[in-house]
Simulated assay, not measured.
Amino acid sequence: MLRCPNCNGKDIGKIGTQDYYCWTCFIEMTVTSNELMVHQIEADGSLSSLDDLFTKEERKLP
């Protein structure tokens, strides 16, 4: 089961083929090659990468 790397929450919704949303801390995640790309949604709807806040190990899928 997918867990949020930010809050470790399980309240994750699927919003696209490879895209997920954490309803606890409101970040978007994209699954690519067994690794998560983590994004913050800005007020204008654009995405800002949060990958630099997490190690590759923290973003790795089980």
Score class of each variant (00 low, 15 high):
Glu42Asp: 10
Met1Thr: 08
Ser46Trp: 06
Thr55Leu: 07
Asp44Trp: 02
Glu58Ile: 02
Glu42Val: 11
Cys7Met: 09
Glu42Ala: 12
Cys22Tyr: 00
Phe54Asn: 00
Ile12Asp: 04
Gln18Trp: 09
Ile27Cys: 04
Leu53Ala: 14
Asn6Thr: 08
Gln40Tyr: 07
Asp52Cys: 13
Met29Thr: 03
Phe26Gln: 13
Asp51Asn: 13
Cys25Ala: 06
Gly45His: 00
Thr17Phe: 04
Thr55Asn: 04
Val31Trp: 05
Leu61Tyr: 06
Glu35Met: 14
Val31Ser: 09
Ile41Asp: 04
Cys22Lys: 01
Asn8Thr: 11
Val31Phe: 08
Met1Ser: 10
Phe26His: 15
Gln40Trp: 03
Leu36Thr: 00
Phe26Asn: 15
Ile12Lys: 01
Thr17Pro: 04
Phe54Lys: 02
Ser33Gln: 15
Thr30Ala: 12
Leu61His: 07
Lys60Arg: 14
Gly45Tyr: 01
Asp44Gly: 05
Lys56Gly: 08
Gly13Val: 08
Asp19Val: 12
Lys10Phe: 12
Lys14Ile: 10
Ile15Gly: 04
Ser49His: 11
Leu47Asn: 01
Asn34Gln: 15
Ala43Pro: 10
Thr32Tyr: 13
Arg3Phe: 07
Met29Ser: 05
Glu28Ala: 11
Gln18Met: 09
Gln40Ala: 06
Asp44Cys: 02
Glu35Arg: 11
Tyr21Trp: 11
Asp51Ala: 10
Ser46Ile: 09
Lys56Ala: 12
Trp23Asp: 11
Val38Ala: 01
Val38Tyr: 04
Tyr20Leu: 07
Thr30Ile: 13
His39Met: 11
Ala43Ser: 13
Ile27Thr: 00
Leu36Val: 00
Ile41Tyr: 03
Thr24Ala: 15
